[in-house]
Design a binder for these strands. Structure first.
Lengths: 231, 231
DNA sequence: AATATAGTGTGTGAAAATTACACCATTAAA
DNA sequence: TTTAATGGTGTAATTTTCACACACTATATT
């Protein structure tokens, strides 16, 4: 016996909270909408999931179309399903976050017309966002604040080679408090998954700092996990 | 300008992983399906979300209809959106978990015909479940294992008045390892959110243990949070 | 009444982790 | 050569974690 699924007028969407770190500040990626509803508002990159793609795939596609960014490792974190969150009908949205290196070269360029532009905005003093995106952002921020302390997510935000001071200032930005330099370095190095390089910082007008790399292999060995405990 | 939402043949559903603790074992609630697809299979309680209800509301309603249980505090934990997870069409499911006291009196009785019966099953040696429900369960189990250590979820599984030994055996069941009695008690009591009662255990054929209660107010005061950090 | 049974309840010392804290070194630019 | 800016380093006190064993008590059994 076949049972037919009901055919509702319901739609899934995906919204992305993309974090980056630049100039000592934590930022997220916003777009300026070019479509009703909320035309001209700022919003998280997000759009509707197609029938024949998984939500994970949709998240990647949509982010690419709206910002030009690709191949991020996105992580689902919450689904928002209030009845009236979208003014034009029932839309349930699955929210994803990702952490990336903000890279001057990488140009942010919307591919579709739905977004007029995409740009980085500091997480402090965010303007009002379209839909319930302010709430979505807040939820994402709380999540990554938590995860910073038991998952190696900090390294996704930093350049591949970084100094300990940069690492510390990232922790300070996310946790919103000052940390002690000596204790921070001692602890980070004690984990044993930071690889000290022979290189030094360049182009600074003060004593150049040593550069380090995050060693994924060592991390996985030390913590006996596949680096993806989120699920 | 109004933009019309696309009208796909897409459906949201909700699935619930309800944990309980009984006889030193962690259990979950399963139903026997009485409807295609997967008729006669065991499955997590779950069904389709109506157009005019939030997913949180849907979770409560559906659990009630399938098991007779009500007023649980359910917590969303992941959304499963593979294209072919449901054999009859595109169904994205939002999964919830809850932890409850298994209570002999409370009868499990499906209200609708979609489930033939509902019953508790130990989390060890689970049979194969319908759809991707085995994966959903696994994800839920990992989540609560994690949360046990930074959220007071253990107390939702125990009777209101419990002994320290019961609390310990719950931790042991979830973490799947033995804990040291003296250290466990010392640590738990040191938090200061357990209230020692004047009462003792009754009906045991050995020395009766003191009963304790979880003091929600103290907990909230101590940890400066609203006891709901999940979001 | 004696005894067997089963779980309750308690303390200490060693090791590890966390915290607080201050000064000299190096580089580039002025 | 001086200055401005950040890099880099060690120690002692405190707190937390961990390992570990035995006497007590309530009931059931004989």
């Amino acid at each position: 016996m076949e049972v037919k699924l009901p055919s509702f007028d319901s739609v899934f969407s995906v919204d992305c909270v993309i974090f980056g770190f630049e100039a000592g500040e934590l930022k997220i990626l916003l777009i300026e909408r070019n479509e009703e509803p909320y035309k001209d508002w700022l919003a998280l990159p997000g759009y509707i999931v197609e029938q024949d793609e998984s939500i994970d795939d949709a998240a990647e596609r949509i982010l690419y179309e709206l910002t030009g960014l690709r191949d991020l490792h996105m992580q689902q974190f919450h689904t928002f399903g209030e009845v009236n969150r979208h003014p034009q009908g029932r839309v349930i949205t699955v929210a994803y976050y990702a952490l990336i290196r903000i890279n001057g070269q990488k140009e942010l360029r919307p591919i579709t017309q739905y977004a007029r532009k995409a740009f980085w905005h500091p997480v402090n003093e965010l303007p009002k966002l379209a839909f319930d995106h302010s709430e979505i952002f807040k939820t994402a921020f709380n999540k990554i604040r938590r995860r910073l302390n038991y998952q190696p997510i900090a390294f996704e935000l930093l350049p591949e080679k970084f100094t300990l001071t940069q690492l510390q200032s990232l922790y300070e930005a996310v946790e919103n408090r000052k940390l002690d330099k000596r204790n921070f370095r001692k602890k980070m190095l004690s984990y044993g998954f930071l690889k000290e390089l022979d290189e030094k910082q360049k182009g600074v007008s003060y004593r150049a700092a040593k550069l380090y790399k995050f060693d994924r292999r060592k991390y996985a060995k030390i913590f006996h996990n596949d680096m993806n405990l989120d699920k």
